[in-house]
Amino acid sequence: MTSFLRVLALLWSAGLLVVLVGAFRPETPVLGLAGSFVTGQYPLHLTLAAVLGILIGLAARRAAPFTGYLTATVALATVIGMVTVLAAQGRAASDEGVRLDWTEALTVLGQPSGAPDRTVEYAPGRELDLYLPSGPGPHPTMVWVHGGSWVGGERDDRTAFNRWLADRGWAVAAIDYRLPPTGWGSGGTGAGTEPIGRDQQRDVACAVDWVRAHTGDELDPARLVLAGQSAGATLALSTTSGLLDGTLACSEAPAALGGTGPADAPPPAPGPPPAGVVAFHPPVDLALIDPDLQQTLLGGAAADSPGLMRLLSPSEQVRPELPPTLLLLGSADHYVDPARVTAYDAELRAAGVPGRLVTVPYADHVFDRPFGSPGAQLGREAAIRFLTGLD
C-alpha cells in the first residue's frame, strides 16, 4: 500500500503540474496545449481532481513525507490556479449576462444527441440533418457547417447545440460537405486530386439553395444565417462573402463575375443574402494554416495562389457589405492565432460590419465541444442573443 500511495501521489502531482503550467503558460511546448484544452473544456473537473490530490498527498506523507508534501503543495497550487480560471470564465459569462450552470459543467461532458427531426439529401451525395422548432413556422434558419480541418469531421459535431437552438425558435440545417481522399495534401494516395476548398464552398452554397427552395411552413430564407466551428466557421464566413458578391453559387459563377467557372456559365441564381454569420474559433487567414492544409485547399502554398486566397480566406474579404458577424474564440487557442482573429474582428468593425468578438478566458480550440463547459454555455447564449438581434 505504501508503494502504491507513493506512485499514485507522484503521478497525480505530475499530471496536475502539467495542466497548471500549461494553463498559465500556454506558449510552453506540449504543456501549453494540454493545459489550455483541459481548462477550456473541463476546468471544474480539474479543480476537483486537485482537491483530491491534496488528500492523496496528505495520505502519502506518513510513509513518504517528501512525496506527500510535494503532491499536496502542487495540488494546492492547482486548486488556486483553477479557482482563478473559473473566476475569469465566470466573469466573462457575467459580462455577457450569462449565469453559468456549474452542475451542467460537471455532468455534461460531451455533445449529447440532439435527435434531428429528419435527414435529407440537399445535393447529389450530400446530406443535412434538419432540426425544427416545435411551433408554427416559417422559422429563421441556420446552416451549420462542421469542423474537422477541412479533411474530416461530421455534421453532428454540435448536435446538442443544434437542438438547443431549435428549442429557441431557430431551425438548423447541419450539413456535410465533400472531403479530400485520404492522403491528399501530404503526398499520399490522394496526390494529384484537385484542391478541395472551392468545392467545399459550393456544397455550402448548395445547402443555402436548398433552404431557399424549401420555403413555406418550415423555413424562412429571408432570415438565413451561416454558422460553423473551426474549418466550418471559415467556410461559413467565406461562403457568405461569395454569395454576397456573386462569385459563388451551387453552380460556379462565370469568370466574368470573378469566379472560376466557364466564361459562358450562367450567373448564380439570385436569392436573399445571409442575414448574419456565427463563427466559433475560425481560422480566418489561410496563409497561417499548415502547409499540407494549404495544399489540400489551394493546390499549393497560399503565396502561390492569390486568386483562390481571395475566394477562400476571410481575411481577404473584409468590406462594409458583409452581414453582422459574431466571432467566438478561446484566448489560448493553439490551432488558430488569437491575435489574428482579434485583428480580423477589428478590421470588420472598422469597415462598418456589425457584430462583435466574444473571448473565453484560458480556453483552447473547440472549447465548446463538451455541451456543459463554461465556454459552451457562454458561447451558445452569446449566439442566441446575436441571432435574436437580427430579427
Results as ranks from 00 to 15, higher is better:
259 G>E: 00
242 G>I: 14
117 D>E: 14
372 G>D: 12
321 E>F: 07
325 T>S: 07
301 A>M: 06
173 A>T: 08
237 L>E: 06
123 A>K: 03
117 D>C: 04
81 G>M: 00
285 D>F: 11
47 T>W: 08
382 A>C: 09
329 L>N: 04
33 L>Q: 02
29 P>Q: 04
140 P>C: 06
175 I>R: 08
254 P>W: 06
238 S>W: 06
148 G>V: 08
219 L>M: 12
87 A>S: 12
4 F>V: 15
375 G>S: 07
43 P>T: 10
232 G>T: 05
376 A>N: 09
206 C>G: 12
387 L>Y: 01
135 G>E: 14
10 L>G: 07
10 L>V: 04
72 A>E: 00
129 D>Q: 12
141 T>N: 06
47 T>Y: 00
139 H>M: 07
376 A>Y: 03
28 T>Y: 10
261 G>K: 06
222 A>C: 01
80 I>G: 15
30 V>K: 07
7 V>Q: 10
177 Y>Q: 03
157 D>H: 15
75 A>P: 02
237 L>R: 07
180 P>S: 02
217 D>K: 12
348 L>Y: 02
30 V>C: 04
258 G>C: 02
211 V>T: 04
290 D>G: 05
282 P>F: 13
33 L>N: 05
198 R>E: 09
305 S>T: 15
84 T>I: 13
39 T>V: 03
34 A>C: 14
252 E>N: 05
69 Y>R: 14
36 S>F: 00
135 G>N: 14
154 E>A: 14
125 G>A: 03
239 T>D: 00
298 L>T: 05
345 D>T: 10
247 T>H: 13
231 A>H: 11
48 L>G: 09
265 A>R: 11
116 P>H: 06
207 A>V: 04
86 L>W: 08
333 D>V: 10
151 V>H: 00
224 L>C: 12
87 A>M: 07
201 Q>C: 04
385 R>P: 05
72 A>S: 11
303 A>C: 04
183 G>W: 11
79 V>A: 05
70 L>Y: 09
175 I>E: 01
36 S>L: 07
88 A>R: 05
59 A>W: 13
260 T>I: 11
386 F>R: 08
184 W>R: 14
10 L>D: 02
177 Y>C: 00
9 A>I: 01
205 A>C: 12
280 F>A: 12
175 I>K: 00
110 G>M: 09
102 W>M: 01
233 A>V: 08
159 T>Q: 14
329 L>M: 03
249 A>T: 09
385 R>L: 02
226 L>H: 04
64 A>M: 06
60 A>D: 02
13 S>P: 01
141 T>S: 10
52 L>P: 00
217 D>P: 09
72 A>L: 04
28 T>N: 01
231 A>G: 13
40 G>S: 08
182 T>V: 13
346 A>G: 13
361 P>V: 11
71 T>R: 01
153 G>W: 01
194 E>R: 14
207 A>D: 03
195 P>Q: 06
123 A>Q: 05
383 A>R: 03
109 L>P: 00
26 P>G: 02
232 G>C: 01
105 A>D: 09
324 P>W: 03
154 E>G: 11
261 G>P: 08
205 A>W: 10
57 G>V: 05
69 Y>F: 14
182 T>R: 13
111 Q>K: 07
33 L>T: 11
156 D>Y: 12
334 H>A: 12
212 R>I: 05
54 I>V: 15
45 H>K: 04
344 Y>R: 01
116 P>F: 13
